[in-house]
């Protein structure tokens, strides 16, 4: 079995895995980082979104071996020194979760949305709704998720 090494949440991590091991399995089963969820396992629901080299990607649809040497950030890597990331804080503030299963992927995708539009003066609600197309909330709690992202935009813009 190959040994795969990547930097996860700032720490170098290595583990043996099969070539067919998905990144999400590598994170959950080899590294114990179970914050990244597996919802559909078919590239649709977005519960498994992590950032690979700064870009949000569905970790159920990339192999661990593809990501040798990559910098991965998962939901566990967002809070710094006991302080929540502004997007997490706004999800809490606006009660942007019901059952919470989709939340890790939602937060990671939401940060991606803000990152893509950081250079613009405002973020339209329509843009947020459209760019959440790859994330499903089966509780249908989208309104508060959108509110949280809109509120996090000025905070992350800095």
């Amino acid at each position: 079995m190959p040994t795969v090494t990547m930097t996860v949440n700032g720490k170098k991590m290595s583990a043996e895995c099969e070539n067919r091991t998905l990144l999400v399995q590598f994170l959950r089963e080899k590294q114990g980082l179970t914050g990244t969820h597996v919802g559909c396992d078919t590239t649709q629901c977005g519960a498994c979104v992590v950032h690979i080299d700064g870009l949000p990607v569905k970790s159920c649809t990339t192999l661990a071996v593809q990501n040798e040497g990559a910098k991965i950030v998962t939901i566990e890597g967002l809070a710094k020194d006991g302080k929540l990331h502004p997007m997490q804080e706004m999800f809490r503030e606006h009660h942007a979760l019901q059952c919470g299963f989709c939340t890790p992927g939602m937060v990671m995708a939401a940060i991606g949305i803000v990152d893509r539009h950081k250079g613009e003066p405002t973020l339209a609600e329509k843009t947020v709704r459209h760019e959440l197309e790859g994330n499903f909330c089966r509780c249908t709690g989208y309104h508060n998720i959108v509110k949280a992202i809109m509120a996090a935009f000025p905070l992350m813009k800095g």
Binding site: G46, V57, K58, T62, A109, G112, E133
Partner: peptide, 9 residues
């Protein structure tokens, strides 16, 4: 095509 995450790959 797909969604933002799919378009990144």
């Amino acid at each position: 095509i797909g969604d933002p995450q799919v378009r990144n790959r």
